[in-house]
């Protein structure tokens, strides 16, 4: 393992302290927790948004804390859901009395820990609602299983529900908008290399030099299949067509696109991918309202990407375009 860390068990703590030292004007750490909140939290008269999950996905989620997006982010251990007491601390720190929306990525651990925290908060008289993001089309959707994972599409939920909260909407209305995003966003990823969880000390898996894994999850969960590595055009077309077909995108639809790096893939390659994505959408008569290219939901130092597409209506487009002031949203 070759990493710039002090001690594997201290990585998250050290990162949080580094973040606060870099951005004291934007973020503060709730004492004795791994929670980062807006420097001006709780924001009076506003519904608050809390998200979080395992660390290692930076800028998710603390990078989306700020005006127009999240009020708080709970940073779990690397790739490990935070515990209920931490989530509860976040809820209590950001609630202004207008209620709190929890944005949860669909993983067994995240759902359990956030639900336990929600129950504890409700017992203390705080109004809490939760939405679960499941945008990863690599996983078969079924009511009998855990279902689809939440990946990069989650950032669109933060952005749009956050904008609606900033507008002064009620908790119910913020939830409605969040659910609309979840219903209309799909993602699909792929990986070229593995990544190493600091405490594990060695890569979680390995991908041969001439292969790639399609459908890889953001914690290195196995994807749908391994294949011989292909050109960017072919990879982009494969991922995009799975997304488009799953969401039933049609000519005339308006969308936002996110080409996300899993950590090690440089912008140059992301733009190479987007050439195909942009051209394909155009040729199908789909209007691209906005394209986001960069690191949004990473998986430590994994090389690879994910492509997310969000179908927009007037309301979602307006909220997507609204101002946001956070470290990670560009």
């Amino acid at each position: 393992m070759k990493k710039l860390i002090n001690h594997p068990e201290q990585v998250v703590r050290d990162m949080i302290e580094g973040v606060v030292l870099a951005h004291p004007d934007r973020l503060k750490n709730v004492p004795d927790t791994s929670v980062l909140i807006r420097a001006d939290a709780p924001v009076r008269g506003k519904v608050a948004l809390v998200s979080g999950g395992g660390s290692g996905h930076e800028p998710a989620h603390a990078g989306y804390v700020g005006k127009g997006m999240l009020d708080g982010a709970v940073c779990g251990e690397v790739f490990t859901s935070p515990t209920p007491d931490q989530v509860l601390a976040a809820i209590k720190a950001v609630d202004s009395g207008e209620g709190v929306l929890l944005v949860i990525k669909n993983y067994t651990g995240d759902v359990m820990n956030f639900e336990m925290a929600a129950e504890l908060a409700e017992a203390e008289g705080i109004q809490v609602t939760k939405v679960i993001v499941n945008d990863d089309v690599a996983v078969e959707n079924s009511t009998y299983t855990t279902g689809r994972r939440g990946i990069a599409g989650t950032v669109f939920v933060h952005k749009i529900a956050g904008a609606q909260a900033e507008n002064g909407a009620s908790l119910q209305d913020v939830e409605r908008v969040a659910l609309k995003v979840i219903e209309n966003v799909r993602s699909m990823g792929m990986a070229l290399t593995s990544c190493t969880v600091p405490a594990a000390g060695k890569p979680g898996f390995s991908i041969p030099e001439d292969e790639m894994e399609i459908g890889m999850g953001i914690h290195g969960e196995p994807g749908t299949h391994r294949a011989k590595i292909a050109e960017a055009d072919s990879v982009a077309s494969q991922l995009l067509s799975l997304v488009i077909n799953d969401m039933g995108l049609q000519e005339g639809d308006r969308v936002a696109v996110m080409i996300n790096s899993l950590g090690a893939t440089p912008q140059m390659e992301l733009y190479v991918l987007n050439k195909t994505v942009g051209q394909t959408l155009k040729s199908r008569g789909i209007q691209v309202h906005k394209t986001y290219v960069g690191e949004y939901m990473t998986s430590l130092e994994m090389a690879g990407c994910s492509i997310s597409v969000l179908r927009l209506d007037e309301e979602l487009a307006e909220l997507l375009d609204a101002d946001a002031d956070t470290l990670g949203w560009k």
Binding site: G54, E77, T80, S81, T83, P84, D85, Y107, G109, M112
Partner: peptide
Amino acid sequence: LIQKVGGASGPI
């Protein structure tokens, strides 16, 4: 265990 493990195994 609930407070220190995290993931799914902590709550379980």
